[in-house]
Nucleic acid binder design. Structure first.
Lengths: 209, 209
DNA sequence: TAGATTGTTAATCGATTAACAATC
DNA sequence: TAGATTGTTAATCGATTAACAATC
């Protein structure tokens, strides 16, 4: 019925970027933009931009270009910004705290509904508007509350068992900062492997010289 | 002379992953592995693994497979782990502090040699073994010290001017957390756009249902 | 209407996968 | 030697770019 050949991951990963650039255009009161002009700003080809947008429908007008406001709202719609999903954070160390306290992360389709840690010095503190609970309470919490996604900022050694517990409770999406790859059928992992990113940069710096 | 057709970015981004998996094999005292076996563990094809390694040379042995220790040391060599580069961090808010204090990030080819912020509440504190300096001292510091790379964890509004100042002082590599894209000829940006990552996850979660 | 720019089909390019001869 | 598995060439697949007819 709504079959139209799945949108490739390459396209999906460009969507937030389009969203950002359109946001900026709006801020600057630019009402109209052509694929050529946008491609210059973003460092893409005009052709790619038109191809990308046409995965979702024809948002432009021949001879004119794209209406920025319309395009922005279409892309917001596609990204589903207005559909708020419930997230919890597991591991409230330095990184976890930074993530939980960053309002920016929770203005784009997610809200934080819980925070967990095993460290008794941290349990009871407040991060991102949530009182940190002990990880032992996880199963009980998940039984009583609706949660769509879990942020993983725990040490690599405990990730696997944590993911097992969470998936057992029905969690099917993870924003994973643990630098460990996990693949489970039907479960979605968005990995942010910071060490990998850093090593890639390092390699490219050597390469350059 | 050492011309052999540049290694594609897709391959480069897999290198740290190979490195991680090989590290784990070593930890488990596994001395030998075939491309097939590694491909099962990593969720790649054996063919891709052999292609990837052969961008850098033949590390295997027909009929046997790969010696884990040798392969690990070759990949370490390729990634240049032992060549330590000097990094500074600009912006020591929640995220900047988490990055600076994470020893893990500075055990893979980088060391932190300076930290800067404009907030007087933060200037003078210690993060990642460095006393936070005021950003006004940046140019003087860069004149007197060798710096290869700058970590950008400042608000989006000030990134551009900060990058301009840093590139004017000769910095040619950035680990960029600011969620702003900057492109400058001859300057390398490794972007970690956390909000983009989160929005991508959000989209994929909607898509699923 | 003429000019501009889209939507879309076709061509190209690059990356992944398959196949197999080389060889340990 | 026979079996296994690499290194490497060829085939396939998918994503990007180019081209152009449709149309505002």
């Amino acid at each position: 019925m709504e079959k139209k050949k799945a949108v490739s991951i390459a396209v999906v990963r460009r969507l937030p970027r389009y969203y950002r650039y359109l946001e900026e255009l709006l801020r600057n009161n630019i009402t109209k933009i052509s694929s050529k002009e946008l491609s210059d700003r973003m460092g893409l080809t005009a052709s790619q931009i038109r191809q990308d947008f046409n995965c979702f429908g024809g948002f432009g007008q021949q001879g004119y270009g794209y209406n920025v406001e319309l395009l922005y709202s279409e892309i917001s719609e596609i990204l589903g910004i207005s559909t708020v999903k419930d997230a919890i954070i597991i591991g409230v160390g330095n990184l976890g705290r930074a993530l939980a306290n960053n309002r920016d992360f929770f203005m784009h389709g997610f809200r934080l509904v819980g925070a967990f840690d095993v460290n008794m010095d941290i349990v009871g503190r407040t991060v991102g508007g949530q009182t940190v609970r002990h990880s032992d309470e996880l199963e009980k919490f998940l039984e009583e509350n609706h949660v769509d996604m879990a942020i993983l900022s725990v040490p690599p050694t405990v990730v696997r068992s944590m993911v097992d517990r969470l998936t057992a409770c029905g969690i099917k999406a993870f924003w994973n900062f643990s630098n460990v790859d996990i693949r489970i059928e039907g479960v979605m992992f968005e990995n942010v492997h910071l060490v990998d990113s850093l090593m890639t940069l390092h390699y490219r710096m050597l390469d350059k010289k």
